[in-house]
Simulated assay, not measured.
Amino acid sequence: MQTETVQPGLFARLVEIGHGSARAAASPEVLYDRHGVLVVRVGDVVVKAHQADREHGPPFLERIRLAGTLPSIVIAPLGSPLTVDGRTVTLASFGEPVDPSQALPWEEGARLLAALHSESVPAEAPSWGRPTRVARLVSRLGDGPAEDAVRRAFVTLPAWIRGEVDEPPAQTERLIHGDWHLGQMIRIQDGHWRLIDIEDMGRGDPAWDLARPAALYSAGVLPPDDWERFLGAYRAAGGPAVPAQDDPWTSLDIPARSLAIQIAATCVITAGRDDRVLDEPEQAMIDACVRISAAGDAA
Rank of each mutant, 00 (worst) to 15 (best):
L14S: 04
S27A: 15
G296W: 14
L70N: 08
P8Y: 13
D226E: 10
Q283F: 07
D225P: 01
E199R: 12
L252G: 05
A49H: 10
S80R: 15
P240Q: 01
A298N: 01
V46W: 01
L252N: 10
I75K: 04
I286Y: 07
D166I: 00
T270R: 15
G20C: 10
I261A: 12
D148C: 02
E124W: 08
A114V: 11
I186D: 08
V37G: 06
A76D: 02
A52I: 14
P126R: 07
W208M: 03
L14M: 04
A260Y: 00
D200R: 12
S120I: 07
E107M: 05
P77A: 14
S120G: 04
S218D: 00
A244F: 09
I188C: 01
D197G: 10
D166L: 12
D279Y: 08
S139M: 08
D85Q: 15
G232S: 13
P224V: 01
V39Q: 13
T172G: 02
I198Y: 04
P105R: 02
L231N: 11
T250N: 01
A265W: 07
A110D: 11
D209N: 00
V74F: 05
R174W: 05
G129E: 13
P97C: 12
L137T: 02
I161R: 15
P213G: 02
V155D: 14
G238Q: 12
R257I: 00
T156Q: 14
W106K: 05
Q2S: 01
T270K: 13
Q51A: 15
A92I: 09
W160P: 10
